[in-house]
Simulated scan of single mutants.
Amino acid sequence: MTESRQFQFGEMAQALFDSEEAPAVPIQMKGGKLPSYIKDHRKRLRARFMDGGAQAMPDYELLELLLFRSIPRRDVKPIARELLETFGDFNRVLSAPKERLRAVPGIGDTVITDLKIVEAAAHRMARSKVIKRHVISSWDAVLDYCHTTMAHRDTEQFRVLFLDRKNVLIADEEQAKGTVDHVPVYPREVVKRALELNASALILVHNHPSGDPTPSESDIQMTSQVNDAAQALNITLHDHLIIGKSAELSFRSAGYL
Rank of each mutant, 00 (worst) to 15 (best):
S253G: 13
S36G: 08
A126E: 05
P72H: 02
R48A: 08
E82C: 04
V160E: 03
R74P: 04
A103C: 11
L94E: 00
Q157T: 11
L115E: 03
I112D: 02
S138H: 13
K132A: 10
Q157A: 13
P72A: 09
I203D: 02
R73A: 07
A96E: 03
S138F: 01
V130Q: 02
E174N: 13
G211M: 06
L67A: 00
S246P: 01
G106N: 05
R69D: 10
D59A: 14
F162H: 08
L84R: 01
A80Y: 04
F68Y: 14
N198G: 13
N234V: 06
L237D: 01
R100N: 15
F7V: 01
F7W: 12
R92H: 10
I131W: 03
G31I: 06
R42E: 05
L34Q: 05
S4G: 10
A229Q: 03
G31N: 15
P215R: 00
V226E: 04
Q225R: 14
A141K: 09
V104K: 01
S250N: 09
A230V: 05
H41P: 01
I131Q: 08
A151S: 14
R44N: 15
R46K: 10
S138T: 10
D75P: 03
E189V: 07
E11V: 10
T148D: 10
V205Q: 00
V130R: 03
K132Y: 10
T236A: 10
V25M: 12
S95I: 00
P23Y: 06
D114H: 15
L233Y: 13
D239R: 01
S216G: 15
E3C: 13
P23T: 08
E174M: 12
E189H: 11
V135F: 05
E189M: 12
Q231V: 06
L197T: 04
T214E: 11
A201N: 06
H208G: 05
K39E: 12
I170R: 09
N234Q: 12
Q221Y: 07
E11N: 10
A54T: 06
S138V: 04
L84N: 03
L115W: 02
P187W: 05
A176K: 04
L195N: 13
I131G: 04
L101H: 04
G31V: 08
A201C: 14
P187V: 05
E196P: 04
D114F: 06
I220D: 00
E82V: 02
A151E: 02
D228C: 07
I136R: 07
T113D: 11
D40M: 06
A47T: 09
S128V: 02
E156M: 14
A229G: 02
G53Q: 08
G106T: 05
Y256Q: 03
I71T: 07
A54D: 09
F251P: 02
G244I: 03
F162P: 02
K39R: 15
V25P: 07
Y37T: 07
E248F: 14
L169Q: 01
K177P: 03
T149E: 03
R74Q: 13
P105S: 15
H147L: 09
